[in-house]
Nucleic acid binder design. Structure first.
Length: 304
DNA sequence: AAAACGTGGCG
DNA sequence: TCGCCAAGTTT
């Protein structure tokens, strides 16, 4: 079946008119995030990308500095205990990411000579690394020419190319990938700059709520702007409730464990959630995830 | 393939 | 106050 339209046709013209303005805007407006400095290593880029999975970069920055100071290479992190790593992760959220980052460091040590692999195909085999992270590290640390398609890029493309306020699906479609591929500059280094630039535009200007079109370097090329910024009819549902969920309970349990240098009693954990059934279920799941170590006599701690 | 998975800032 | 949203990945 034919695509809704030919991405080549659209992006051949769009590519020539939006890449320049966006990279030009980026050269002036880019935030000076610590992992963008010339001294940042591939490992530093890797750590920054994992930390930034669902956590705002403004909160990641200080954590990244402390982390890199403590574990400057994959070897250093691989030698740390889960307890140390979980505590250092602190409240970045989704602590399983911290465990997977440590696991990835061990794989890098064991299978890649301690060097972060350079290719997308290698990176994506690492624990906690999916399509986005593999592409981001390959591009930003090694200048591989790969499509980097995160939530920011998807939103910018939705607006500029498709004239929609938000992407219509919760994950990227074939068509979006085809469009992004067409837009990608032909050499690796230029492609990498384009990718950070359009990500940054999405983060700073083409924001999800109340975008600053007046500051946008490509509003003149934007289908959504041209259409008068129509509100989305239907968009991907995001279902986010948090109060009362297991996620909240797990968070409370982990907060108690992180704060204590010594094993914690079941009674102490009982204090953070009154529903015995739910609390026990969450504790079990944390143990299964390797985030909590059960000890004899009903005590618990972060895994050593 | 839908749902689970933390945390906090902002309008 | 409260819903929205943040450089996603895993099962």
């Amino acid at each position: 079946m034919p695509p809704a339209f030919d991405p080549d046709g659209v992006t051949a013209s769009a590519g020539s008119t939006i890449v320049g303005p966006v990279t030009g805007w980026f050269a002036v407006q880019a935030r000076d995030l610590p992992w963008r400095t010339p001294v940042a290593t591939p490992w530093g880029v890797f750590v920054s990308e994992v930390m930034s999975q669902q956590t705002p970069v403004t909160r990641v920055a200080p954590a990244w500095l402390a982390w890199m100071d403590r574990w400057p290479t994959p070897d250093h992190l691989a030698a740390a205990t889960p307890a140390e790593v979980i505590r250092a992760w602190d409240r970045l959220g989704y602590p399983r990411r911290a465990l997977r980052l440590r696991d990835a460091a061990a794989v890098i040590r064991d299978n890649f000579g301690g060097q972060v692999p350079r290719k997308y195909d290698e990176l994506i085999t690492l624990p906690g690394v999916g399509d986005y992270t593999a592409a981001a590290v390959a591009a930003f640390a090694f200048d591989e020419r790969v499509v980097v398609l995160d939530t920011n890029v998807r939103r910018v493309l939705a607006r500029v190319i498709f004239g929609l306020e938000h992407p219509a699906t919760s994950s990227a479609t074939k068509l979006e990938r085809a469009v992004a591929q067409e837009l990608l500059p032909s050499d690796g280094p230029s492609a990498a700059v384009w990718s950070v630039a359009i990500m940054e535009l999405g983060a700073l200007v083409c924001q999800a709520s109340s975008p600053s079109c007046n500051l946008c370097p490509i509003r003149g090329e934007c289908a959504w702007f041209a259409a008068g910024r129509p509100a989305q009819v239907s968009r991907a549902k995001r279902a986010q409730k948090f109060e009362g969920t297991d996620r909240q309970v797990r968070g409370k349990l982990m907060a108690v464990l992180r704060a204590s240098d010594h094993p914690v009693t079941a009674a102490a954990l009982r204090a953070c959630w009154s529903d015995d059934f739910q609390r026990d279920r969450c504790l079990d799941s944390l143990v299964s995830d390797g985030l909590v170590e059960p000890l004899p006599r009903g005590r618990f701690r972060l895994p050593h």
